[in-house]
Design a protein around this nucleic acid. Structure first.
Lengths: 341, 341
DNA sequence: GCCGGCCATTGACACGTGTTAAAACGTAGT
DNA sequence: ACTACGTTTTAACACGTGTCAATGGCCGGC
């Protein structure tokens, strides 16, 4: 609204040259108030002001659809409204995207924006980028070491530890390995094998899952599972599994790092003429779509990632501190029976 | 440190209170120069300075390992050193991660940091987040509409259009569809079907690829391919394909949106007792690992994404303008023969 | 001897914000 | 009438940076 000529012509206290960006000066001008008032009202400290003043401010801000500058705010407060999800270069498939979307929609309630950082080649550059960017929170999916995390927190950035290592380090991964082994040790006394990814960079959870399988085997008096690194192609998988598959002594049970590895193991078993699940039984992880579409249909472990993320997001609210509640890994994983075990 | 009484008392021109952050004031102090000198030297405008001065500045900056504040720089220049890759909520699998990593490592040469934004639920919030964050560049993977892009560019943010829509909109996708159809129309005159994803939100490239297949069919005098939306589970796929598979009149050729859909189609064909590739031939897209591991091994289309990204990254250099060179879509895609065609 | 001109360096400003201390104002109390 | 006080609003500062105009020193030339 144009202010009448008889009103006191409230001019800016400080000069400001024209620009395309809508700043809080513009809001103050339109509202006929000072910039300081605008800032205080818009930041929730408006209870000391008259109600009509507050309304004038919010109305003006709305009309100009004013968005405070991230740079200015970050410069003053030292904090941004960013959440960075640091992810290793691993094949999360759709799960990761669902997880990120869940985090994004949940944290939108706090006015946070979520971005993903793939810490692919070198984690050092990701550390530097995060320290430079100064997000409010970093969600760490096994990208940073303890020393890195210390530096990040020293910079005043909150760290949400990885799901798996939150309270009980790698508790869920171990439980997954145990469940795989338990399924394969059910009826015939199978000799266990753990099939890991050949590309160790992608094999983030492999060691923990293999440890879980080994624990389960030990508790049942079975032999320690042999560990095999399986490439994701026909010939490579065949060669990697030749020592185990060529002259099998009794039924085998192969715990696989994920459904992709399971597909490779099935391919190798087929190439050696072994029958599934009689001579070779297979259990994957992830319950992917293709795992259920191929023949034979894969026996696999489903992880209720959304439920886990819900726990994580609960600790994401700015004011809130760590929940610290201990989770039960077993309640988040389920065996999906198929035709390979 | 207490400065000696006989030295020239180089005091700060402007006062500054102690803080944990290393600022350019600290560098200037240690170098015994002015902050302005520091800034100019570190920003490449140092050719006007004495060489010894430049060395003093760089040495001091190195010693304190000074990193300029993003907020301060962004506030002054209005530009950040961020690149945001906007990605739809689609299953890119490992390709996306490789692509992002490639972009990140390439653009690290320009001192840029790459972050990914999953524009999952609502693109509007992603648009707002990007306008707020003011990155230097946005790489758009079919997230934003033309109007959105206009707003982004109006804000002074560079936009690298999606690979597929860079010069010839969807040219590559159409070529993929054509190549699929060409393979399936080779020997027996098959009736073509295009199998799309049931979840239309994920089916970004489906329409374009189906168009390509239709063009190829028309150019060969074949019937227009029927379009079927296939869910990624056994029962859903079976029901979706029942009209086509139950009473097939002659050999069928199914172009699939990707290898996952191809797996679903194979599952449905098997459930109807149809032989592959005699009664039903299938061609996927993406050349995924599992597609090559399953039986029968999938015939599929490989896209040389790294090569495409290399072109994209070439246009990413800050000073450089659009290359504008027209690409040959056919030179980036290859048919990978398998056992399903 | 003084002035113009060149070189190396610096002071000052602006970017947009949040917060604190102080000012303006109206009202009641002595 | 003048002061003390509570309420409402504002001026001023600081955050850290990049850039432009200006300063100081130095030399040669008239």
């Amino acid at each position: 609204m144009a202010r009448g000529v008889w009103e006191t012509p409230r001019v800016r206290t400080q000069k400001k040259q024209n620009s395309s960006r809508v700043t809080s000066w513009d809001v103050a001008d339109l509202a006929g108030l000072s910039r300081s008032t605008v800032s205080q009202v818009l930041n929730g400290h408006g209870d000391r002001f008259n109600e009509e003043t507050r309304n004038r401010v919010t109305a003006a801000a709305e009309r100009l659809n004013y968005r405070p500058s991230r740079a200015g705010r970050a410069l003053k407060t030292g904090v941004t409204d960013l959440i960075v999800v640091a992810v290793p270069n691993i094949t999360f498939g759709r799960q990761l995207q669902d997880t990120v979307e869940q985090i994004a929609s949940e944290s939108a309630r706090f006015g946070m924006s979520v971005f993903v950082r793939y810490a692919g080649s070198d984690p050092a550059s990701t550390l530097a980028a995060i320290l430079d960017m100064r997000p409010a929170t970093v969600v760490n999916f096994r990208v940073f070491t303890a020393a890195d995390l210390e530096r990040i927190e020293a910079a005043g950035i909150r760290v949400i530890p990885s799901l798996d290592s939150s309270q009980d380090p790698a508790g869920i991964e171990i439980s997954i390995g145990r469940l795989q082994a338990r399924e394969l040790l059910r009826e015939p006394k199978r000799r266990l094998v753990y099939a890991l990814l050949a590309d160790t960079r992608l094999d983030l959870y492999g060691p923990d899952r293999a440890t879980g399988a080994a624990e389960e085997a030990a508790s049942r008096g079975a032999r320690d599972p042999a560990r095999v690194r399986v490439p994701l192609n026909r010939e490579g998988a065949r060669e990697a599994l030749r020592p185990v598959f060529e002259k099998p002594e009794g039924p085998l049970g192969v715990c696989c790092y994920n459904d992709e590895v399971a597909a490779a193991v099935l391919s190798a078993a087929r190439s050696f003429g072994l029958s599934v699940p009689d001579q070779v039984a297979v259990v994957g992880v992830d319950n992917t779509d293709v795992g259920q579409l191929i023949t034979p249909r894969l026996t696999t472990i489903a992880v209720d990632l959304p439920a886990l993320v819900r726990l994580l997001v609960a600790a994401l609210e700015p004011g809130q501190d760590e929940t610290g509640q201990r989770i039960q890994p077993e309640s988040f994983i389920t065996l999906v029976p198929g035709e390979t075990s």
